[in-house]
Every structure is written in structure tokens, then in C-alpha cells.
């Protein structure tokens, strides 16, 4: 099985971090994984996106053009990538920032008020982790408890103060 994920938003929203957590969890499960960020002009202050491929096979292209799963944190990304999702695929849209509904009827769309939930809970900057909680809950890609533990383990000791915030954000996302 090969699962293609595309995560997109503005620079600073934690797109690359969230993508890395998914790739890292896949690696921990013994899967082949690739993580490829956009590094062009769009990453210099504009939109940022990242391709993650998780597979039982050897991975060919690391670039995701037709995602099974799209996670978006801003309207430009939603508009740019909505039509690229494979039929039967899924979109997670931060509905606090994207006030658009998908016109697609052949995919599942989760409207997740991640940024709103982050600011309501004194977790500004953690909308990406809230979204990860929702993403794992809905896709069942990884065991949720293991994924959270893996995420916590990846936080360097110098940033231990962020452990509780990540845990809270993830738990909130899992409950949305």
C-alpha cells in the first residue's frame, strides 16, 4: 500500500513539522517514507507545502501530485490543491481560516476549526498539532496513542516546556 499526503499552508503554520511527524511515525513502523518540502519562492514568505509518501513498497517519486489526503491551513492552498485529490480521497481543511466548502462529491472533507480551537485554548501556534490529532483519528493511519508518544519523544530536551502543549493540542484535535 502507498499513501500520499500533501500538507499546505502559510510559512510558520507548522506545515513542515506536521509532515515530519507523519513521516517519522511511518518510519518507526518500518514503512518506507519520503518527506519533500517545497523550497521555491513560495516557501519564502508565501505558501508552503510538503509531500509525504508512506509505503510498503520502494517509493518512486517523492513528489505528491495526486494526494490520497490533503491537509490545508489557508485558502490559497485549498483553492490550489482541492481538485488534485484522488477520487475517494480526503481533505482536512482548517475551517477557522478557510471559509470555503468543497464542491467535490467524490471525496470526504473534514472541516476542522483547528486555528480557532488553538486560540480558544491558549495554544496559539499549535493548530498543526490539533490537526494531526484529527487526522490520525479519522484516517486511522497510525495508532493514536503511539503516534502521540512518538511525537512527544521527538521533542528535543531543550524544548521540554512544549510537551504539555503538544499533548493538549493533540488531545483536543482527537476530540473534534
Amino acid at each position: 500500500m502507498t499513501y500520499n499526503i500533501l500538507i499546505a499552508g502559510f510559512g510558520g503554520q507548522g506545515v513542515l513539522f506536521a509532515a515530519k511527524q507523519i513521516a517519522s511515525a511511518g518510519m518507526a513502523l518500518g514503512k518506507n517514507v519520503t518527506w519533500l518540502p517545497s523550497y521555491g519562492p513560495e516557501s519564502r514568505g508565501g505558501t508552503s507545502n510538503c509531500s509525504v509518501v508512506i509505503s510498503d513498497e520502494e517509493i518512486g517519486s517523492p513528489l505528491v501530485i495526486k494526494p490520497d489526503c490533503l491537509i490545508v491551513f489557508n485558502l490559497p492552498s485549498f483553492e490550489k490543491f482541492e481538485q488534485s485529490v484522488k477520487p475517494g480521497g480526503v481533505i482536512f481543511s482548517d475551517s477557522s481560516l478557510v471559509d470555503r466548502k468543497s464542491t467535490r462529491e467524490d471525496i470526504t472533507v473534514h472541516y476542522v476549526p483547528a486555528s480557532g480551537a488553538a486560540s480558544d485554548n491558549n495554544l496559539t501556534g499549535f493548530a498543526n498539532v490539533i490537526m494531526l490529532g484529527k487526522f490520525i483519528k479519522e484516517t486511522g493511519l497510525f495508532d493514536s496513542e503511539k503516534f502521540l508518544n512518538h511525537l512527544i519523544d521527538n521533542i528535543p530536551p531543550s524544548r521540554a516546556a512544549l510537551i504539555d502543549k503538544n499533548r493538549s493540542a493533540y488531545t483536543i484535535g482527537s476530540g473534534l
Binding site: K20, V33, L36, Y39, P62
Partner: peptide
Amino acid sequence: DGALGQMMEP
């Protein structure tokens, strides 16, 4: 190339 430089893999 740029993709190999920028991408992460195990």
C-alpha cells in the same frame, strides 16, 4: 539534485 538534497528519508 535538489529533490535528493531537500527530501528526507530513513
